[in-house]
Design a protein around this nucleic acid. Sequence first.
DNA 1: ACCGCATTCAACTCAGGGGTTGAACAAGTG
DNA 2: CACTTGTTCAACCCCTGAGTTGAATGCGGT
Lengths: 118, 118
Amino acid sequence: MDDQLSRVFSALADPIRRDMVARLADADAGVNELAEPYDVSVQAVSKHLKVLEEAGLVTRTRDAQRRPVHLEAEVFDLMTKWIERYRRQAEERYRRLDDVLAEMDTDTAAPDRQRGAS
Amino acid sequence: MDDQLSRVFSALADPIRRDMVARLADADAGVNELAEPYDVSVQAVSKHLKVLEEAGLVTRTRDAQRRPVHLEAEVFDLMTKWIERYRRQAEERYRRLDDVLAEMDTDTAAPDRQRGAS
DNA sequence: ACCGCATTCAACTCAGGGGTTGAACAAGTG
DNA sequence: CACTTGTTCAACCCCTGAGTTGAATGCGGT
Protein backbone atom coordinates (compact mmCIF):
# COMPACT_ATOMS: atom_id res chain seq x y z
CA MET A 1 0.00 0.00 0.00
CA ASP A 2 2.22 2.78 -1.20
CA ASP A 3 0.35 4.83 -3.77
CA GLN A 4 -1.97 7.60 -2.77
CA LEU A 5 -5.09 5.98 -4.16
CA SER A 6 -4.49 2.96 -1.97
CA ARG A 7 -3.92 5.14 1.04
CA VAL A 8 -7.12 7.10 0.47
CA PHE A 9 -9.30 4.08 -0.07
CA SER A 10 -7.71 2.36 2.88
CA ALA A 11 -8.19 5.41 5.07
CA LEU A 12 -11.90 5.55 4.27
CA ALA A 13 -12.36 1.84 4.82
CA ASP A 14 -12.60 2.47 8.56
CA PRO A 15 -16.01 3.57 9.92
CA ILE A 16 -14.49 5.78 12.60
CA ARG A 17 -12.30 7.55 10.07
CA ARG A 18 -15.22 7.99 7.70
CA ASP A 19 -17.22 9.48 10.52
CA MET A 20 -14.41 11.83 11.40
CA VAL A 21 -14.25 12.99 7.79
CA ALA A 22 -18.01 13.48 7.84
CA ARG A 23 -17.75 15.66 10.90
CA LEU A 24 -14.75 17.55 9.58
CA ALA A 25 -16.74 18.42 6.49
CA ASP A 26 -18.87 20.47 8.84
CA ALA A 27 -16.17 22.09 10.94
CA ASP A 28 -12.52 21.88 11.84
CA ALA A 29 -11.82 20.24 15.19
CA GLY A 30 -9.08 19.26 17.60
CA VAL A 31 -8.19 15.71 18.53
CA ASN A 32 -10.02 15.66 21.85
CA GLU A 33 -13.10 17.11 20.29
CA LEU A 34 -12.96 14.48 17.58
CA ALA A 35 -12.37 11.68 20.02
CA GLU A 36 -15.33 12.50 22.22
CA PRO A 37 -18.10 10.53 20.44
CA TYR A 38 -16.15 7.28 20.14
CA ASP A 39 -15.32 5.08 23.02
CA VAL A 40 -11.69 4.64 22.13
CA SER A 41 -8.72 6.43 23.61
CA VAL A 42 -7.55 9.80 22.39
CA GLN A 43 -4.33 8.17 21.26
CA ALA A 44 -6.25 5.86 18.99
CA VAL A 45 -7.96 8.85 17.39
CA SER A 46 -4.60 10.52 17.00
CA LYS A 47 -3.46 7.49 15.04
CA HIS A 48 -6.54 7.63 12.86
CA LEU A 49 -5.76 11.24 12.13
CA LYS A 50 -2.26 10.32 11.12
CA VAL A 51 -3.70 7.87 8.63
CA LEU A 52 -6.05 10.50 7.21
CA GLU A 53 -3.19 12.95 7.05
CA GLU A 54 -0.88 10.58 5.20
CA ALA A 55 -3.69 9.95 2.76
CA GLY A 56 -3.82 13.69 2.13
CA LEU A 57 -7.40 13.89 3.33
CA VAL A 58 -6.59 16.19 6.18
CA THR A 59 -4.10 18.87 7.20
CA ARG A 60 -3.28 20.28 10.57
CA THR A 61 -2.36 23.74 11.68
CA ARG A 62 -1.39 25.07 15.06
CA ASP A 63 -3.56 27.29 17.20
CA ALA A 64 -2.00 27.70 20.64
CA GLN A 65 -1.68 24.22 22.08
CA ARG A 66 -4.45 22.84 19.90
CA ARG A 67 -3.83 21.38 16.49
CA PRO A 68 -7.05 21.87 14.56
CA VAL A 69 -7.71 19.32 11.87
CA HIS A 70 -8.88 20.56 8.50
CA LEU A 71 -10.50 18.50 5.75
CA GLU A 72 -8.87 18.70 2.32
CA ALA A 73 -11.65 17.82 -0.06
CA GLU A 74 -9.56 17.89 -3.24
CA VAL A 75 -8.26 14.37 -2.66
CA PHE A 76 -11.79 13.11 -3.15
CA ASP A 77 -11.38 13.91 -6.82
CA LEU A 78 -8.67 11.29 -7.07
CA MET A 79 -11.17 8.66 -6.09
CA THR A 80 -14.10 9.92 -8.08
CA LYS A 81 -11.91 10.12 -11.18
CA TRP A 82 -10.83 6.54 -10.76
CA ILE A 83 -14.32 5.32 -9.99
CA GLU A 84 -16.01 7.24 -12.77
CA ARG A 85 -13.45 6.08 -15.29
CA TYR A 86 -14.24 2.44 -14.81
CA ARG A 87 -17.91 2.93 -14.20
CA ARG A 88 -18.15 4.67 -17.55
CA GLN A 89 -16.02 2.05 -19.21
CA ALA A 90 -18.24 -0.70 -17.86
CA GLU A 91 -21.41 1.12 -18.90
CA GLU A 92 -20.02 1.79 -22.33
CA ARG A 93 -19.33 -1.90 -22.60
CA TYR A 94 -22.87 -2.82 -21.61
CA ARG A 95 -24.16 -0.32 -24.13
CA ARG A 96 -22.16 -2.09 -26.84
CA LEU A 97 -23.49 -5.38 -25.59
CA ASP A 98 -27.00 -4.02 -25.93
CA ASP A 99 -26.18 -3.00 -29.49
CA VAL A 100 -25.00 -6.48 -30.26
CA LEU A 101 -28.17 -7.94 -28.81
CA ALA A 102 -30.26 -5.47 -30.77
CA GLU A 103 -28.31 -6.44 -33.85
CA MET A 104 -29.05 -10.08 -33.18
CA ASP A 105 -32.70 -9.23 -32.78
CA THR A 106 -32.91 -7.65 -36.19
CA ASP A 107 -30.93 -10.55 -37.60
CA THR A 108 -33.40 -13.06 -36.29
CA ALA A 109 -36.46 -10.86 -36.70
CA ALA A 110 -36.08 -9.82 -40.32
CA PRO A 111 -33.89 -12.36 -42.14
CA ASP A 112 -34.41 -16.03 -42.46
CA ARG A 113 -37.70 -16.57 -40.81
CA GLN A 114 -37.27 -20.29 -41.14
CA ARG A 115 -36.80 -20.74 -37.41
CA GLY A 116 -38.71 -18.85 -34.77
CA ALA A 117 -36.90 -16.51 -32.44
CA SER A 118 -34.93 -18.19 -29.70
CA MET B 1 -15.54 -3.78 9.07
CA ASP B 2 -19.07 -4.99 8.63
CA ASP B 3 -20.98 -2.43 6.57
CA GLN B 4 -20.89 -2.47 2.81
CA LEU B 5 -19.23 0.90 2.44
CA SER B 6 -16.31 -0.31 4.51
CA ARG B 7 -16.09 -3.48 2.49
CA VAL B 8 -16.08 -1.60 -0.80
CA PHE B 9 -13.46 0.93 0.24
CA SER B 10 -11.38 -1.80 1.77
CA ALA B 11 -11.65 -3.93 -1.36
CA LEU B 12 -10.41 -1.09 -3.55
CA ALA B 13 -7.56 -0.25 -1.20
CA ASP B 14 -5.54 -3.05 -2.75
CA PRO B 15 -3.69 -2.28 -6.01
CA ILE B 16 -4.13 -5.77 -7.38
CA ARG B 17 -7.85 -5.69 -6.73
CA ARG B 18 -8.14 -2.23 -8.27
CA ASP B 19 -6.32 -3.51 -11.31
CA MET B 20 -8.61 -6.50 -11.54
CA VAL B 21 -11.62 -4.21 -11.41
CA ALA B 22 -10.05 -2.06 -14.11
CA ARG B 23 -9.62 -5.08 -16.35
CA LEU B 24 -13.08 -6.42 -15.57
CA ALA B 25 -14.54 -3.11 -16.68
CA ASP B 26 -13.31 -4.11 -20.12
CA ALA B 27 -14.33 -7.74 -20.18
CA ASP B 28 -15.43 -10.60 -17.97
CA ALA B 29 -12.72 -13.11 -17.18
CA GLY B 30 -11.96 -16.33 -15.38
CA VAL B 31 -9.67 -16.68 -12.41
CA ASN B 32 -6.66 -17.98 -14.31
CA GLU B 33 -7.00 -15.30 -16.90
CA LEU B 34 -7.14 -12.69 -14.17
CA ALA B 35 -4.20 -14.15 -12.31
CA GLU B 36 -1.90 -14.20 -15.29
CA PRO B 37 -0.43 -10.64 -15.07
CA TYR B 38 0.43 -10.78 -11.38
CA ASP B 39 3.14 -12.90 -9.93
CA VAL B 40 1.07 -14.35 -7.16
CA SER B 41 -0.57 -17.74 -7.02
CA VAL B 42 -3.95 -18.40 -8.54
CA GLN B 43 -5.27 -19.12 -5.06
CA ALA B 44 -4.33 -15.65 -3.94
CA VAL B 45 -6.29 -14.17 -6.84
CA SER B 46 -9.20 -16.39 -5.93
CA LYS B 47 -9.15 -14.84 -2.47
CA HIS B 48 -9.04 -11.35 -3.93
CA LEU B 49 -12.09 -12.22 -5.96
CA LYS B 50 -13.88 -13.37 -2.85
CA VAL B 51 -13.21 -9.99 -1.29
CA LEU B 52 -14.52 -8.17 -4.35
CA GLU B 53 -17.53 -10.43 -4.38
CA GLU B 54 -18.36 -9.85 -0.73
CA ALA B 55 -18.09 -6.14 -1.39
CA GLY B 56 -20.70 -6.55 -4.10
CA LEU B 57 -18.32 -5.32 -6.76
CA VAL B 58 -18.37 -8.53 -8.69
CA THR B 59 -20.61 -11.51 -9.39
CA ARG B 60 -19.81 -14.92 -10.79
CA THR B 61 -21.72 -17.21 -13.05
CA ARG B 62 -20.91 -20.66 -14.25
CA ASP B 63 -19.87 -21.52 -17.77
CA ALA B 64 -18.74 -25.13 -17.95
CA GLN B 65 -15.79 -25.46 -15.59
CA ARG B 66 -15.00 -21.78 -15.75
CA ARG B 67 -16.56 -19.25 -13.39
CA PRO B 68 -16.47 -15.96 -15.27
CA VAL B 69 -16.23 -12.89 -13.11
CA HIS B 70 -18.49 -9.99 -13.91
CA LEU B 71 -18.12 -6.41 -12.70
CA GLU B 72 -21.16 -4.90 -10.99
CA ALA B 73 -20.72 -1.19 -11.44
CA GLU B 74 -23.75 -0.11 -9.44
CA VAL B 75 -21.89 -0.43 -6.17
CA PHE B 76 -19.69 2.43 -7.28
CA ASP B 77 -22.66 4.70 -6.69
CA LEU B 78 -22.53 3.90 -3.01
CA MET B 79 -19.07 5.39 -2.83
CA THR B 80 -19.63 8.35 -5.09
CA LYS B 81 -22.74 9.26 -3.13
CA TRP B 82 -20.81 9.23 0.11
CA ILE B 83 -17.87 11.11 -1.32
CA GLU B 84 -19.95 13.71 -3.11
CA ARG B 85 -22.04 14.32 -0.04
CA TYR B 86 -19.13 15.39 2.08
CA ARG B 87 -17.24 17.06 -0.71
CA ARG B 88 -20.26 19.26 -1.33
CA GLN B 89 -20.74 19.86 2.35
CA ALA B 90 -17.14 20.96 2.72
CA GLU B 91 -17.37 23.20 -0.32
CA GLU B 92 -20.59 24.72 0.91
CA ARG B 93 -18.85 25.43 4.15
CA TYR B 94 -15.97 27.15 2.41
CA ARG B 95 -18.44 29.16 0.41
CA ARG B 96 -20.07 30.36 3.63
CA LEU B 97 -16.65 31.15 5.00
CA ASP B 98 -16.01 33.28 1.95
CA ASP B 99 -19.30 35.05 2.61
CA VAL B 100 -18.25 35.76 6.15
CA LEU B 101 -14.96 37.12 4.99
CA ALA B 102 -16.70 39.26 2.40
CA GLU B 103 -19.06 40.41 5.10
CA MET B 104 -16.12 41.39 7.27
CA ASP B 105 -14.69 43.31 4.36
CA THR B 106 -17.84 45.37 3.99
CA ASP B 107 -17.96 45.81 7.74
CA THR B 108 -14.51 47.29 7.84
CA ALA B 109 -14.93 49.15 4.55
CA ALA B 110 -18.27 50.81 5.41
CA PRO B 111 -17.63 50.99 9.14
CA ASP B 112 -20.04 50.34 11.91
CA ARG B 113 -23.30 52.01 11.43
CA GLN B 114 -24.15 50.51 14.78
CA ARG B 115 -22.26 47.24 15.11
CA GLY B 116 -23.14 45.23 11.98
CA ALA B 117 -25.42 42.24 12.17
CA SER B 118 -24.01 39.02 13.65
C1' DA C 1 -14.53 -44.55 -15.85
C1' DC C 2 -10.70 -41.77 -16.10
C1' DC C 3 -8.03 -37.67 -17.05
C1' DG C 4 -7.28 -32.91 -17.15
C1' DC C 5 -8.43 -28.31 -16.39
C1' DA C 6 -10.33 -24.45 -13.47
C1' DT C 7 -11.35 -23.28 -9.10
C1' DT C 8 -11.66 -23.56 -4.21
C1' DC C 9 -10.71 -25.29 0.61
C1' DA C 10 -7.43 -25.94 4.50
C1' DA C 11 -3.65 -25.04 7.23
C1' DC C 12 0.03 -22.30 7.90
C1' DT C 13 3.35 -17.98 7.99
C1' DC C 14 4.26 -13.18 8.40
C1' DA C 15 3.48 -8.20 8.47
C1' DG C 16 0.64 -4.58 9.62
C1' DG C 17 -3.63 -2.35 11.63
C1' DG C 18 -6.29 -0.95 15.50
C1' DG C 19 -6.47 -1.01 20.22
C1' DT C 20 -4.40 -0.30 24.89
C1' DT C 21 -1.47 2.13 28.75
C1' DG C 22 2.18 5.09 30.35
C1' DA C 23 5.41 8.48 29.59
C1' DA C 24 7.04 12.55 26.92
C1' DC C 25 6.54 16.90 24.67
C1' DA C 26 4.41 21.65 23.52
C1' DA C 27 2.27 25.87 24.87
C1' DG C 28 -0.43 28.83 27.37
C1' DT C 29 -1.73 30.39 32.53
C1' DG C 30 -1.28 30.90 37.65
C1' DC D 1 8.84 28.21 37.61
C1' DA D 2 5.12 24.94 38.41
C1' DC D 3 0.73 23.41 36.56
C1' DT D 4 -2.68 22.17 33.28
C1' DT D 5 -4.36 21.06 28.82
C1' DG D 6 -3.78 19.04 24.24
C1' DT D 7 -1.40 16.05 21.62
C1' DT D 8 2.02 12.64 20.34
C1' DC D 9 5.59 8.83 21.05
C1' DA D 10 6.78 4.07 22.53
C1' DA D 11 6.02 -0.48 23.64
C1' DC D 12 3.11 -3.84 23.67
C1' DC D 13 -1.31 -7.21 22.50
C1' DC D 14 -4.39 -9.40 19.38
C1' DC D 15 -6.54 -10.18 15.16
C1' DT D 16 -7.06 -9.80 10.37
C1' DG D 17 -5.22 -9.68 5.52
C1' DA D 18 -2.27 -11.16 1.89
C1' DG D 19 0.60 -14.60 0.66
C1' DT D 20 2.15 -19.51 0.42
C1' DT D 21 1.72 -24.87 -0.59
C1' DG D 22 -0.93 -29.05 -0.90
C1' DA D 23 -5.04 -31.44 -1.26
C1' DA D 24 -10.02 -31.53 -2.58
C1' DT D 25 -13.93 -30.47 -5.66
C1' DG D 26 -16.66 -29.64 -10.11
C1' DC D 27 -17.13 -30.50 -14.87
C1' DG D 28 -16.20 -31.48 -19.51
C1' DG D 29 -13.43 -34.45 -23.03
C1' DT D 30 -12.11 -38.99 -24.71
